[in-house]
Design a protein around this nucleic acid. Structure first.
Length: 1025
RNA sequence: GGGCCAGUAGCUUAGCUAGGUGGAGCAUCCGGCUGAUAACCGGAAGGCCCCCGGUUCGAAUCCGGGUUGGCCCA
């Protein structure tokens, strides 16, 4: 169990003891609202890592707003209805179609559904609690409750009253064997690549001899129902002479389908030119009830295959159906629900449509209407249960006419802030632009019953409340589900005949889309509260909900109120496995949330998921990544806290009566300035739904500014025994930083935040950090100049360390001075930081560093060559043997005489190239204009002090090995080589002070541990007093 | 089959809107520091920036095609 998990267990106990989670639900009640809406999951499967991700996003924003003083209602919700539930129950009962369900009985069946809905509800609750997600699961909204259904009914009646509810046809994927339509995800499971005959069919142009449109289809049986042909309006078509017949087809397709010499082009025309041209029907089994058999235009016609002329049968294709509506084409559907041709199709009646294909092809061929036949490979859906090829089939259904509300939807979408913003115009906006009518009806059992009653005369009545139903029927139903509600009848107001309910249930997406209304049982209860909470400020779900909940929420509220039901939405991506693959049971790459909770803890998961990338980037989930968050960020938080606790305990420090921040040491004011920068950035990020910027900024502050710089550089201020003002200031600063960081991170990592808050107990503290107000920036504490100074100072230290490294000079060895150029100067109280970090006695600021460099010279061959010709090589050799430093001096003071093979030359300054090299006693580190030079010259004193530090370090190691308490006193006895003893004697007080020793005896001894350091060996014995 | 998004060091990623010598963190290696830290500091090594083609003086970046993965739809 990691430190994180132990901490979180402790915090969970604390929360339990003080009832914090429940109290947070009540927090700020009566204040201004931040109106959040939880999307309802279905609890018929256990939650996974992606649910943790979604809940972290929801919780973090809500907690932030709560800390900003808003009341945040956080009602839990459960989505109960729908086909997946029914299928799960079918599986458990070992049955697989509607007939078997009806045999089993609708009543017991829906009872099973009701039970199965909450199979995993305990897992969900446990996950929610363990994650620290503040959510009211005591009193959630539940879509199968009568009160919820009643509100849904009310909303449907509102829509019905506006005339937006109609009966119509929809083209559904339909399994003729199972006698049922399939939902989209069922269809998606069953796509297979098949090879089928496709045919080219000639449609004779009306009033023209020997002229035909050439169309192409993969489903010959739908030709019986053909009512139109479609061409692309903006593509070119040609009328050609082909083997003595005139054919019209797309120009680009003719080139593909036929050899050039086989045909001659008679005419070239645009698709749009042909619109309205009539042709003679292929078959006349069904006489259409309105104009048909003419050319239409449609954008979905492609030039990728076929002839560029598409045969249209609105009863058997979605595109066809939509086109049919546009041209008011008849719906010719001589096919029965069992997938066979009906009576009027005399040659093939009772025959399964697919089986009739060969015979239909033969028929066309006999009548010379067939131009060709090729095998064609394409994707086709099959029933996932029984493997029967699905038919696209027009079924009656009840619709909401969303296409009429398209503009309203788009206008309302304008009022929503999307995160990321591109969804608004992109995926979601484009979907709205092409929004289709919403098929509300499902021929199923477990769902909200459609409250539409109808008499044999076709009069309709929509029920909008339980009361209304009771008054009309004089009966009370035990519950609103099927089959009970199906039995309720009442006389028609207009004709007196018996009204019966249409047996549909409604699409469960309508249920969840009604959540803002139905979760409050509006308008039957909570009218005022509903007004206050509508529209909601914030929702967050996965990107897969764009056409799901995000749409259904907007669709319902637009249809009922013509308003959006949410103002801001975070649309997050999915959690994938470490390889970027989807997590699925079959792949075995699913990560068990509890394995994570138990090893890494909730905060680590939360922080990992948020700080890695923006919420809308897919998360490649890795345990190592979560572990890294623990090791780096969370461990650092705990350790800074641990440091504080250790010394605060020793000193009995409490953050009470604190010193005035503006009067504190420079480094303290620096930290507070950084802290207040952080406060502003984090608060702004969260205000703007930026869940990435906030944790990244906090991590940086905690690890870099607070831990690695402030605490490390200021450790000594906490050590000493006396109560100095400086020590007080250091404590106050550290306590304030921790206190503020705990509040800043509270929305994101609620457990660690709580622990820090509790341990750094401010006098006015509350029961929980989560009841605190979110920090606000104190502008008076911002000091940009100081921050700039410290940033330069850190750079100087970095360069100084690099300089030491370049000459292998250990930091333990004190040095005389460091010379700094290019940073101006620092305030006096910052300079000691450089001295201790670099272990130097003096810091000097100089802009002219030439004194630290030696000038060297070497002969310049380019100059020597012209001057000395053949002698130049030899001259160069001679000169290079000289000391380059002396050479430089000579060259610059009058030049050098040189003799080669008896010839005398005089070389002047210009004949040399000069370089500056750093003197041997210096080391340098540079970056840009900043130069840091260390004086490496060691005096006896420095050497002795170095020895003393080596000795101290060894003694500290021994203390640690002995597991001594931090404040344990010891006695020392040391023996060793002469030079080492010199150091020990010279710095005896230092050694004694650093190691908390009461005595230090220097005497010959064979006791203790022997150490070897540069300069000799020594032996030391440590005893606790 | 179509639409959208993504592919950068062993891993997680920044840079792409607006073309001009690709930056971090983790991991690795070398050295240092260490009585808060599972840490820290200095340095090193590690990149056909998915592939092919185009535009351009110049492409990780813009365009086209392909490929792999994700999402949505069929």
């Amino acid at each position: 169990m990691s430190g994180s998990v132990a901490l979180e267990m402790e915090v969970l106990d604390l929360w339990k003891g003080k009832d914090i989670m429940r109290r947070l639900l009540e927090h700020n009640r009566g204040g201004e609202y931040f109106r959040f809406l939880e999307g309802p999951p279905t609890a018929n499967a256990p939650p996974g890592v992606h649910h943790i991700f979604a809940r972290t996003i929801k919780d973090s924003i809500c907690r932030h707003r709560s800390m900003k003083g808003f009341h945040v209602p956080r009602m839990g919700g459960w989505d109960c209805h729908g086909l997946p539930v029914e299928i799960a129950v079918e599986k458990s009962l070992g049955i697989e179609n509607k007939e078997q369900i009806e045999e089993y009985g609708i009543e017991p069946f829906i009872k099973k559904c009701r039970e199965s809905v909450f199979t995993y509800i305990d897992d969900w609750s446990r996950m929610t609690d363990r994650l620290g997600y503040v959510l009211d699961l005591e009193d959630p909204y539940v879509t199968m409750k009568d009160s919820y259904i009643e509100s849904v009914w009310w909303s449907l009646k509102e829509i019905w009253k506006k005339g937006l509810l109609t009966e119509g046809h929809t083209i559904v994927p339909y399994c003729p064997r199972c006698g049922t339509s399939l939902s989209s995800h069922e269809v998606a499971q069953g796509y297979r690549t098949v090879e089928e005959p496709s045919i080219f069919v000639k449609f004779k142009i009306r009033n023209q001899e020997n002229a035909y449109f050439l169309a192409w289809t993969t489903t010959p049986w739908t030709l019986i129902s053909n009512v139109a042909l479609a061409v692309h309006p903006d593509e070119f078509y040609v009328r050609i002479d082909y083997k003595g017949t005139e054919l019209i087809l797309a120009e680009s397709r003719a080139k593909v389908l036929m050899k050039e010499e086989e045909y001659t082009v008679k005419q070239r025309l645009m698709g749009s030119d042909m619109e309205g041209t009539g042709y003679e029907p292929l078959f006349d089994f069904v006489t259409p009830d309105r104009p048909a058999h003419f050319i239409t235009t449609a954008d979905f016609v492609t030039m990728d295959d076929g002839t560029g002329i598409v045969h249209i049968a609105p009863a058997f294709g979605e595109d066809d159906y939509e086109l049919g509506k546009r041209y008011d084409l008849p719906l010719v559907q001589p096919v029965k629900p069992d997938g066979t041709f009906s009576e009027e199709v005399t040659p093939w009646k009772g025959m399964s449509v697919k089986d009739a294909d060969p015979s239909i092809i033969e028929n066309l061929s006999d009548r010379s209407l067939l131009e060709g036949q090729v095998m064609y490979e394409h994707q086709y859906p099959f029933c996932w249960r029984c493997d029967t090829p699905l038919l696209y089939y027009a079924r009656k259904g009840i619709y909401i006419r969303m296409s009429e509300l398209r503009k309203n939807l788009m206008d309302n979408n304008e009022k929503i802030s999307w995160y990321p913003p591109n969804i608004k115009k992109g995926r979601f906006g484009k979907f709205l632009e092409e929004v289709k009518d919403w098929n509300l009806s499902r021929e199923r059992y477990w769902g909200t019953p459609l409250p539409l009653w109808r008499c044999p005369e076709g009069h309709e009545h929509m029920i909008g409340s339980i009361k209304e139903l009771g008054e009309l029927s004089g009966k009370e139903v035990p519950e609103l589900h099927r089959p009970y509600v199906d039995e309720v009848t009442f006389p028609c107001k207009e004709c007196g005949k018996t009204m019966k309910r249409l047996t549909y249930v409604i699409d469960c997406w309508y249920d969840s889309g009604s959540a803002p209304i139905a979760s409050m049982h509006y308008p039957f209860e909570n009218r005022e509260e509903f007004e206050k909470q509508f529209p909601r400020d914030y929702i967050a779900e996965g990107i897969d909900q764009t056409r799901g909940w995000f749409y259904s929420l907007l669709a319902v509220s637009t249809a009922v109120f013509d308003k959006p039901s949410y103002r801001s939405v975070i649309c997050h991506a999915h959690v994938l496995d470490g390889e970027g693959k989807k997590m699925s049971k079959s792949k075995g790459n699913v990560i068990d949330p509890w394995a994570l909770f138990d090893t890494e803890g909730a905060d680590a998961i939360r922080w990992y998921l948020l700080s890695q990338t923006a919420p809308w980037k897919p998360k490649l989930f890795s345990m190592e990544g979560v572990n890294e968050v623990n090791r780096s960020f969370l461990a650092t938080v705990r350790n800074v806290l641990g440091f504080y606790q250790t010394y605060a305990d020793l000193d009995g420090y409490k953050p009470e009566g604190r010193t005035n921040p503006s009067e504190r040491a420079g480094v303290d004011r620096w930290l507070l300035s950084r802290l207040n920068d952080l406060v502003r950035r984090v608060d702004e990020s969260l205000d703007n739904y930026d869940l990435l910027g906030a944790p990244q900024a906090i991590s940086y502050f905690v690890m870099e500014d607070l831990s690695n710089w402030y605490v490390r550089a200021n450790r000594r201020r906490f050590w000493g025994g006396e109560e100095t003002v400086d020590k007080q200031m250091a404590y106050d600063t550290l306590a304030e930083a921790l206190h503020t960081v705990s509040r800043l991170m509270a929305p994101l990592a609620p457990f660690h935040a709580e622990k820090v808050y509790q341990e750094v107990a401010f006098p006015d503290m509350l029961d929980s950090v989560h009841m605190e107000r979110y920090p606000t920036q104190d502008e008076d504490l911002i000091d940009d100049g100081l921050e700039e100074s410290m940033s330069l100072l850190r750079k100087v230290v970095e360069l100084g360390r690099a300089a030491r490294g370049s000459r292998n000079m250990k930091i333990r060895q004190p040095l005389g001075r460091v010379v700094v150029k290019g940073v101006g100067t620092f305030d006096d109280d910052l300079i000691p930081i450089i001295m201790s970090e670099l272990n130097v006695k003096e810091v000097v600021f100089e802009e002219d560093l030439s004194g630290y460099f030696d000038m060297t010279a070497e002969p310049d061959p380019k100059k020597l060559g012209p001057k000395m010709r053949a002698h130049s090589g030899k001259a160069r050799e001679i000169l290079l043997k000289e000391d380059p430093k002396e050479l430089a001096v000579k060259a610059r003071s009058g030049g050098i005489g040189i003799e080669v093979d008896g010839h005398e030359y005089h070389l002047i300054e210009d004949d040399f190239r000069f370089h500056e090299i750093l003197g041997d006693r210096y080391a340098i580190g540079t970056e840009g204009d900043i130069e840091v030079i260390l004086d490496l010259e060691l005096t006896d004193d420095l050497i002795r002090e170095g020895v003393a530090r080596e000795v101290v370090r060894r003694i500290q190691t021994m203390r640690k090995d002995m597991d001594l308490p931090y404040d344990a006193r010891i006695s020392l006895s040391i023996s060793g080589d002469g030079p080492i003893l010199l150091g020990i004697e010279a710095f005896k007080d230092y050694i004694v002070g650093e190691t908390l020793a009461d005595s230090l005896d220097i005497k010959e001894s064979t006791e203790g541990k022997e150490w070897e350091i540069e300069g000799g060996t020594f032996r030391v014995k440590v005893e606790q007093i």
